[in-house]
């Protein structure tokens, strides 16, 4: 049984349907990428999985249990954690307060101090800036904080929405290195990215989304060699 199963999902904003008959699965311990251009429905998919949007049809199962009717806070408590697009930090709160807020769910709260040390181990830069307001951090640091806040919830599955957005290439590399480290420590990762090359390189499998539908799926190495992906997404 897969850790996360999305089964024939349909999502609409009012009359506009965004996701069509979308199915995917993520196995425990995997890193899976969802790639696609702007407006392909990647963020909508994550928002539906994390409970911010109600799907019109279809089922989402986490650890075998349907979650599509649960509110976001319940889904987080199950261990399915979403680091949203654009980071969505609490800008007027300190770095430490942002991190501790991540451990609000009861499962994570019991281990708050221990997880905090682990996150600081992963991001020593954040430890130097605990008292600083989140909005004053650089873009790369903000992304680190967003991921760190997500890790504070002790995810079994971490969903990252475009962690490379708006960052310099060297910072992007360090963010992807961190994702690799998080996965190596046993967290399952679902990564949504426009940076197709980097994200597929660290993934086991990938799905390609176009106009709200899965048009391609397969092992990451195969997708990297696929002619359609090479021309449409990698420009080679």
């Amino acid at each position: 049984m897969a850790l996360l199963e999305v089964d024939r999902l349909e999502v609409s904003y009012g009359d506009v349907q965004v996701l069509f008959d979308l199915s995917l699965r993520v196995e425990e311990g995997e890193v899976v990428s969802i790639i696609g251009g702007n407006g392909a429905g990647k963020s909508t998919l994550l928002r539906a999985i994390s409970g911010l949007l109600r799907p019109r049809r279809g089922e989402i199962r986490f650890d075998g249990r349907p979650i599509q009717a649960l509110p976001p806070e319940r889904i987080v408590a199950e261990g399915l954690v979403h680091v949203p697009e654009g980071r969505r930090l609490f800008g007027l709160m300190s770095v430490e307060d942002n991190l501790r807020t991540g451990a609000y769910n009861p499962r994570a709260a019991a281990h708050e101090e221990e997880t905090l040390e682990r996150v600081f181990g992963l991001f020593p830069r954040l430890k130097e800036r605990t008292a600083q307001m989140a909005m004053t951090l650089s873009g790369g640091e903000q992304q680190m904080l967003a991921i760190g806040r997500g890790l504070m919830a002790r995810p079994r599955l971490l969903m990252l929405d475009e962690p490379s957005l708006g960052l310099a290439p060297i910072v992007i590399r360090s963010i992807f290195d961190t994702v690799r480290q998080v996965a190596a420590q046993g967290t399952t990762v679902l990564l949504v990215e426009q940076d197709v090359k980097h994200s597929l390189e660290l993934s086991h499998r990938g799905y390609v989304l176009e106009h709200g539908r899965v048009v391609l799926e397969g092992p990451a190495a195969e997708l990297l060699g696929n002619p359609h992906i090479r021309t449409a997404y990698l420009g080679i």
Binding site: L52, P71, E73, P84, R88, L89, F90, G91, N105
Partner: peptide, 16 residues
């Protein structure tokens, strides 16, 4: 405070 700053982001942290 988190809820007052960003309701959706707060709910993604497990806050109702």
């Amino acid at each position: 405070r988190a809820t007052s700053l960003d309701r959706d982001a707060a709910s993604l942290q497990g806050i109702n």
